[in-house]
């Protein structure tokens, strides 16, 4: 087990290194640089711009810049944002927390909604409920999330029922604890609904298929023969046996926790990593972009690893590596 973790860890570090080199090169190859826009200001001289570029090392050869960047990663700064004149780690901390909050809530809701939906529609296969669920999931899978987001936003705007963007109202500090919770919930509603509408159908589909398969397995009949039925059969017997694909999916949603909501954040104005990364990309604040990509890659690794550990814990067949493990 220990050596297994060590091997995984070594592979992860290697992967991250490769990703970092790739990201670093690709971003620096993009045309334009951070200081291009102030060239349009006739009151700033090329000498001043050159001095600014030299300050941030933009005039150095790439290997040197990569080395400097790697050292800053080692220091825990993860690069330096030119726009904000601050280490990237410091800059991304607050938005990352916001993204995590949004992603976490959305993920929780996704699973809380998906599991019963999937299990019941598998249990009542080909019932009206099942048909309804599968029609809705097909519908939402085929709608791009951006369309969903815009539709919801248009609704929010028309009705003035939801705040437009942000995470808290201007008078947030003066609210009671309950008022604060309500305020955040109201701001979160639009992005969370979009994320749930986008995320749930995928989970429901996979989970429903695997639950339906398990429901036909002999051990379920055996359990019925013992008098086990209803919710206990579905949730205690069938669901764990059908969990493997769901756990892999869970790993994916864990991996997407910091990256799955970026587009929705931009559209709905949630103050997470999405708007920050978009701005940084447009402004060529490249270290921020690279750090975001690295964060995405790291989350992918963590998500996969977590899924593997969960599979190990959940499925005795994998745990012991028996030859007939399915």
């Amino acid at each position: 087990m220990k050596s297994y973790v060590a091997r995984r860890l070594a592979r992860a570090v290697l992967l991250l290194f490769a990703v970092s080199v790739l990201c670093f090169l690709l971003t620096r190859l993009a045309p334009g640089s951070f200081f291009d826009e102030i060239r349009l200001n006739p009151q700033i001289s090329p000498q001043t711009i050159a001095a600014l570029q030299a300050r941030y090392g933009l005039d150095e050869p790439l290997p040197l810049r990569y080395g400097r960047w790697a050292r800053s990663v080692a220091r825990g700064d993860f690069g330096f944002s030119i726009a904000y004149n601050t280490p990237v780690a410091q800059l991304m901390w607050a938005p990352a927390k916001h993204t995590l909050l949004l992603g976490g809530v959305a993920m929780l809701l996704c699973w809380l909604i998906s599991i019963p939906l999937a299990v019941w529609s598998a249990a009542y296969e080909r019932s009206w409920f099942d048909r309804g669920v599968s029609a809705l999931t097909s519908l939402f899978i085929s709608i791009p999330e951006i369309v969903l987001a815009l539709a919801l936003l248009a609704f929010a705007m028309r009705s003035h029922a939801l705040p437009v963007g942000g995470m808290t109202s201007v008078g947030f500090d003066e609210l009671t604890a309950w008022g604060k919770a309500v305020d955040i919930a109201r701001h979160m509603l639009a992005p969370v609904v979009i994320l749930v509408l986008v995320g749930t159908p995928v989970i429901v589909r996979h989970l429903r298929a695997s639950v339906a398969e398990v429901l036909h397995a002999p051990f379920v009949e055996a359990a019925r023969g013992c008098g086990i039925g209803g919710a206990r059969l579905l949730f205690r017997h069938v669901l764990p046996a059908a969990a493997n694909p769901a756990i892999s999916l869970f790993g994916l949603s864990l991996a997407a926790l910091l990256s799955g909501s970026l587009l929705v954040e931009v559209v709905t104005g949630w103050p997470g990593l999405g708007p920050l990364i978009l701005d940084a990309t447009l402004a060529r604040d490249l270290d921020v972009v690279v750090a975001a990509a690295m964060l995405g890659a790291a989350m992918m690794i963590v998500g996969n690893f977590a899924a593997d550990l969960l599979l190990l814990a959940a499925d005795p067949r994998i745990r012991t590596g028996s030859p007939d493990a399915g």
């Binding site: 437009v164 963007g165 942000g166 201007v170 104005g269 701005d279």
Partner: peptide, 20 residues
């Protein structure tokens, strides 16, 4: 005096219309 941020003009308009 409070400055709030909205990435695009439409969002700023919506905030204004919503009274924010």
């Amino acid at each position: 005096l409070v400055f709030v941020f909205a990435g695009n003009e439409d969002a700023r308009l919506m905030q204004f219309e919503a009274g924010e």
